Amino acid sequence: YFQSHPAIQPATVVVEDRAHPSTSELSPTWNRTDEWYNYRSNPRERVHVLAALDESSYTGGTMNGDHPIAWCQDYQGGRAFYTGLGHTKESYADPAFRGHLLGGIRYATGHTQADCRPENGYRPLFDGTAESLADWKQAGPGSFTRSDDGTLTSSGGMGMLWYPGQDLGSYSLKLDWKMASASGDDNSGVFVGFPPSDDPWSAVDNGYEIQIDATDVPEKTTGSVYGFRSADLKKRDRALNPPGEWNTYEIR
Rank of each mutant, 00 (worst) to 15 (best):
F2H: 00
F2R: 01
S4K: 14
H5L: 08
A7R: 15
Q9A: 06
Q9C: 05
P10R: 05
A11E: 05
A11W: 00
T12V: 11
T12L: 15
V14F: 01
V15S: 07
A19R: 01
T23A: 07
E25G: 09
T29V: 12
T29D: 04
N38D: 13
P43A: 08
E45S: 12
R46Y: 15
V47F: 00
L50H: 01
A52K: 09
D54N: 05
T59N: 04
G61A: 04
C72I: 10
Q73Y: 14
Q73R: 13
Y75L: 12
G77S: 05
G78E: 02
G78N: 07
Y82V: 11
T83C: 08
G84W: 01
L85Y: 15
T88L: 11
A93M: 00
D94P: 02
D94G: 03
A96Y: 00
L101H: 00
G103W: 02
A108D: 06
T109S: 15
G110L: 02
T112N: 01
T112K: 06
Q113F: 15
A114M: 04
A114E: 01
D115F: 02
R117D: 14
R117H: 10
N120K: 06
G121S: 06
F126H: 15
T129W: 07
A130F: 10
A130M: 05
E131N: 11
S132G: 10
G142A: 02
S147Y: 03
T151V: 08
G156Q: 03
G157D: 06
G159E: 02
M160E: 10
W162A: 14
W162E: 12
Y163I: 02
Y163S: 04
P164Y: 00
G165Q: 12
G165A: 08
G165W: 10
Q166Y: 02
D167K: 07
L168G: 01
L175K: 00
W177P: 12
W177M: 13
A180E: 08
S181N: 03
A182I: 10
A182S: 08
A182F: 09
G184W: 10
D186W: 02
S188E: 13
S188W: 06
F191M: 15
G193W: 11
G193Y: 09
F194P: 09
D199Y: 04
P200R: 08
W201F: 12
S202W: 13
N206W: 06
N206Y: 10
N206M: 12
Y208V: 11
I210M: 12
I212Q: 11
I212K: 14
D213T: 10
A214Q: 03
A214L: 05
V217C: 14
G223C: 00
S224L: 04
F228L: 12
S230E: 11
D232Y: 08
K234T: 07
A239Q: 05
A239I: 05
N241Q: 07
G244M: 04
E245I: 00
E245D: 01
E245Q: 03
W246M: 09
Y249Q: 15
Y249N: 14
